[in-house]
Write a protein that binds this DNA or RNA. Sequence first.
DNA 1: GCCATTATTTTCCGCTGTCAATAAAAGAAA
DNA 2: TTTCTTTTATTGACAGCGGAAAATAATGGC
Lengths: 395, 395
Amino acid sequence: MRSTPAAETFPAQTPAASQVFTTVLSHGPLTRLDAGRRAGLSPAAVTKAVRPLLEAGYLVEGADEEARPALGRPAGLVRVNGERALFIGVKVTGDELIAVLTDLCCRIRLARRTPLPDRSVRKVLASVAGLVHELLVHAAESGAPVLGLGIAVSGDVDRAEGVVRYSPFLEWRDIPLAELAAMAGGLPVTVDNDVRALTVAEQWFGAGAGLSDFAVVTVGAGIGCGLVVHGQVVAGAHGVAGEIGHVVIDPAGPSCHCGNRGCVEAIAGDAAIVTRIREVTGRHVADSAEAVALARQGVPGAREVYARAGEAIGRGIATVANLLGPERVIISGEGLAAYDLFAGQIREAFTAAAFGSAAQCDVQTRPLPFEEWARGAAAAAIQSFITSTPRSGQG
Amino acid sequence: MRSTPAAETFPAQTPAASQVFTTVLSHGPLTRLDAGRRAGLSPAAVTKAVRPLLEAGYLVEGADEEARPALGRPAGLVRVNGERALFIGVKVTGDELIAVLTDLCCRIRLARRTPLPDRSVRKVLASVAGLVHELLVHAAESGAPVLGLGIAVSGDVDRAEGVVRYSPFLEWRDIPLAELAAMAGGLPVTVDNDVRALTVAEQWFGAGAGLSDFAVVTVGAGIGCGLVVHGQVVAGAHGVAGEIGHVVIDPAGPSCHCGNRGCVEAIAGDAAIVTRIREVTGRHVADSAEAVALARQGVPGAREVYARAGEAIGRGIATVANLLGPERVIISGEGLAAYDLFAGQIREAFTAAAFGSAAQCDVQTRPLPFEEWARGAAAAAIQSFITSTPRSGQG
DNA sequence: GCCATTATTTTCCGCTGTCAATAAAAGAAA
DNA sequence: TTTCTTTTATTGACAGCGGAAAATAATGGC
């Protein structure tokens, strides 16, 4: 039954050990005292938690040369040994696969992309296996073991079960992807929704580190949103959450594929912008790159389309802020390439529509290189590896 | 410094004991086995947790006469002894105080309301003290001790600190209400936002019992929303959360006191409906009761105003469902008196605007008697009492 | 009366994290 | 150089929580 080899498991048996490790992972090198303070543990507990992790090579010690206070015993810093383990993350889009090899600190070692002519589960799995193999070969040279594979798919994904319930882009329904991929690749597999995976990456390795309530908004072909509330990623009781793209901004707006009018996505999604610019300028516009170019050239009407998109996004973010009161909102996504075209409107619309002190929410932007989605998948795999119970876990 | 007497504390030292008690509180009489199953504990742990609570009188045993399976040792049911302790909840509105005396199961024993001619902190405290005294006298007859006072106020309230940061209705800013009321009344005081308090009541004693993700939407003078995500009430990083009333539904809609146009509250709030019906029908309409009457009589235009309000509420709820994917939404509030006038539209708009399986969310309505807000305050007090750490807690 | 069956309690037992005391690693003072 | 002071890390004893398994309890059926 189990074709996957008994993979290495993470030597953090106790809650405290997990706690300490993730704290060090997210907050860089820390003294044992600081780690304890952050994790709410006594120094003694940190010492005990750290030892097996040092022995297993997941943590390393290194003293901080500069910035040492003149008095007292110098602090010994503890940090995660990124070299200790590698992970692979794969993002499956409608027409291509993006894969990255990362270390334990989720730093990208290598990225690959390959077109995906066929969306059948079989073919996708074969392509994934091919990419994974390629990355494994590279990883073998570095000597570090690859300990997990994360796969990110848009749509309704049940991470705990490893099942893709429904992915409209891929036209998949109830595919036990984790199991299938584990059989093909021999690695423990984590499957998650793409936006949630990206949110995990921000939560552990990005601008969300240490925050208990924040949101990630992705702007691109679709408009998505990952939410962290009470320190946990929101998954939704029925698999749907963070659908900011289908929040209705203007009931008189353009119609959306979801059946409504004036969704954020129907105004600010890539396709919507391209279509609208085509209509407004009368020119032929092939893709968003051209749309951006037209707007930057100052072609009449094109700028306004972006302005309107920015307004829609800003309103959507304000809605999230009004409902959840996050500490921070991180805007990211491929669409950020056009950020200069709508940044002002996003901020303006957000400030106008945020209620009371919800406006205090810190709205940031982060560039999103194309491998970022795949990195999110790797982050999910890292998370699974670290939090996996050391019992006989199945792929 | 401490003018409050050393009040009785809840004898649940261990997490397991708290867990078991709240489980029994929310899910009625349970066998020890069932309680353990629900709380994720072994039967042995339940026995140990239950004993001190029985001894202290917070729990009582009672066998279930009917519905006993023919075989095996009959189960001994454990339930909360409501008589063991009483709590007082007070809701402060702009023009009146509502107070209730409840038992430990949050069942209302007595309700009182009194007009509030003056909103100064001094006067409000005096009125609260008067009402509390009156209820205390009644409570004394029953012999059960009153162990906590909850105060619910609309606006930005920091429950942990017991401070009202800003309440627009009362025009209060940074009032350490818990401390002030504790000095006046001699009871441990919990101060919370009114909608959050109501949400706590639903979470522990109502339709949210046992759910880890749900929302409470209140319809009335304002449109509010309390959220429970991952089993905890959402408070917002900056004190604002659940502001569904100021989610913009229609940028071309009527202007709202918050400065925007087309907020849910600007369409479906009591004042908005009355104003609009006045405009549409040309008649004099004094308050919502008259507005409802006109709509029920079939006066042309009045019904449509309610229909539009229902649509706005339904859209707002759909927005919550799209973003958070709650298991259930509980609609409540004074405005529910007009439920027959907009129920259809709420449901319709919700179904239309909910994305994908977010539409599976169970939308319920619950009548909201006038004392319900005060009961929410009592629920908050009960929660504080039960979860209070048995260290030297301050009032 | 004995047995099967289910509920509850008891009796250990492992394990976790805290506490308080101790060691370690400096620079400062003598 | 020695000794102090200061801050960090470690150690070992310890309390207590919750689990596993075995014992006990309460029934109805045979």
